[in-house]
Write a protein that binds this DNA or RNA. Structure first.
Length: 449
RNA sequence: GGCGCGGUGGCCAAGUGGAAAGGCGGAAGUCUGCAAAACUUCUAUUGCGUGGGUUCGAUUCCCACCCGCGCCUCCA
């Protein structure tokens, strides 16, 4: 009643997060903000996967974390720490509200072992050469989330060979043994032998520790439906005998135009800092994500990002002058109808494109007083998280003296009504990457990219 | 091979059984020496991939087809 418990699968910290990853966190942030806007209290838990996991059943030994070790010459622990910090730096820059609990897999190994022990006691597990596995055939509603046809298709149409020791293709490891011939940097003792936890058990153990055996919302990327979340349900419900999660909410992918897979394993990928190098702020990207519904794919392009940047900039141009002269109204009665429309859109499965359109309409509504517009922006930006109420710094970057001299000369030419000369100087300045415009009382300039 | 999603104006993107939000871009006007910025107005009306069907009426429901995309392996 009035309270929402929410769990989100967090990053796997062996490399930087790419903007596709981050779309999901922006979506989760919007979900959380809409819940808060609607008057709920929210307990938000996010996991950080700092244990390395194997590429597939067929792989042995090296996991992604260990590959990072080889790549960077650091310890696994250093790598996890470094990329974890990098992730939260991006996360904050995107204005995602910090989770109430952030938990690391490596801090919860004992909880995971306990959960596996429970499953073992109840007869859901079996042992193979390389680990302790969950027998999915013993959980009749295993295909509940992904759908029966999908799970059956997985078995018949998969392109990947399954480990011969597994009883069912969909069975998964709860605990993996370390390779016999070499020592892993991250490994722990367990009742079954030294090793490390299966990826899925991490989420179940931590989610239930912090949110209870049944909680409200579990979110993540759409790719997790078929395997990760399906397995979480199976192991959790078999362990507790209770429903695990009331609502599953999944975000669609962001892809690139040339259909290159947006994956860390593909080597080069788009990061927040790369966006920054090209002149785009994290909030430009946030705006881009808000422009499409979370359930639809976004095809990323630099052009699309440029459109988003332009739109956000225009929005600030509308709001900025009000901010300089007015304070937002404390009473929202004049914008009650608009706020209601906004709330309808936001709570209609997080329809941010529609919510944004209402923001635009309101910001441009001439019948509203600036104070009321600001009040509307203040209220709705609690959801958008675009820092619309933060005045923009006047960027008057210092120019080289010779460029300043050109500007002064042009002003003088204009005063003397020597327009041929002033136009010439305007072109000259353009070559220096400086755009000038004449405003009452002087010249303003901006640096073109 | 199996499963699924989508095709809406130049681009991006909402939405609905009863004649299609918003943004970007574009056009015109006001302003300006000219621009820029700002402001005003306009910018899908046998239409919402194609062909059928249901219906008084479909872009919205059903079927077929074409095209694009995603997942099926750790993946957000």
């Amino acid at each position: 009643e009035g309270q929402v418990s929410m769990y989100a699968c967090g990053p796997t910290v062996y490399d930087y997060a790419h903007i596709g990853n981050l779309r999901t966190y922006i979506f989760e942030d919007i979900l959380k903000r809409v819940l808060l806007f609607s008057g709920f209290k929210v307990k938000h838990v996010m996991k950080v996967t700092d244990v390395g996991h194997l590429q597939s059943d067929a792989d042995e030994g090296e996991d992604k974390m260990e590959l990072g070790v080889l790549r960077e010459g650091k310890t696994a622990w250093e790598i996890a720490d470094f990329y974890s910090k990098a992730f939260f730096s991006d996360f904050n820059a995107l204005n995602c509200l910090p989770p109430d609990v952030t938990c690391k897999a490596t801090d919860h190994i004992s909880e995971m072992i306990e959960l596996v022990k429970t499953l073992e006691t109840k007869g859901f597990t079996y042992k193979t050469e390389d680990g302790i596995y969950f027998d999915t055939a013993k959980f009749p509603s295993y295909d509940r989330l992904a759908g029966k046809s999908h799970i059956e298709g997985l078995r018949s149409g998969a392109r990947v060979e399954f480990s011969a020791e597994k009883r069912n293709p969909s069975d998964f490891a709860l605990w993996k043994f370390s390779p016999k011939d070499k020592k892993r940097q991250m490994e722990w003792p367990s009742p079954w032998g030294t090793g490390f936890p299966g990826w899925h058990i991490e989420c179940s153990a931590m989610a239930m520790k912090y949110l209870g055996e049944t909680f409200d919302i579990h979110c993540g990327g759409i790719d997790h439906i078929a395997v990760h979340h399906t397995n979480e349900i199976a192991q959790s419900e078999c362990a507790t005998g209770k429903p695990y999660v009331n609502y599953w909410v999944h975000a669609e992918f962001l892809t690139t135009k040339d259909s290159e897979k947006m994956a860390k394993s593909s080597g080069e990928f788009l990061t927040v800092s790369l966006l920054g190098e090209k002149g785009y702020s994290p909030l430009d990207y946030r705006y881009l994500c808000l422009g499409a519904h979370y359930k639809t794919q976004i095809v990323f392009s630099w052009e699309a990002l440029a459109f988003a940047q332009k739109s956000l900039s225009n929005l600030r141009d509308i709001i900025g002058p009000h901010l300089e002269k007015h304070s937002p109204a404390t009473d929202t009665k004049n914008i009650r109808a608009q706020l209601a429309r906004f709330a309808d859109a936001a709570t209609d499965d997080l329809n941010m494109p529609k919510a944004l359109s209402i923001l635009w309409e309101t910001a441009r509504d001439k019948t509203l007083a600036p104070e009321d517009i600001l009040a509307f922006v203040r209220e709705t930006d609690r959801v958008f998280g675009l820092d619309l109420m933060v005045p923009r710094k006047k960027e008057r970057a210092a120019l080289p003296p010779e460029t300043m001299a050109l500007i002064t000369e042009r002003e003088q030419a204009r005063k003397a009504k020597n327009f041929a000369r002033s136009d010439e100087l305007r072109n000259e300045l353009k070559k220096h990457g400086v755009a000038v415009k004449d405003v009452p009382g002087g010249t303003e300039w901006t640096i073109d990219k």
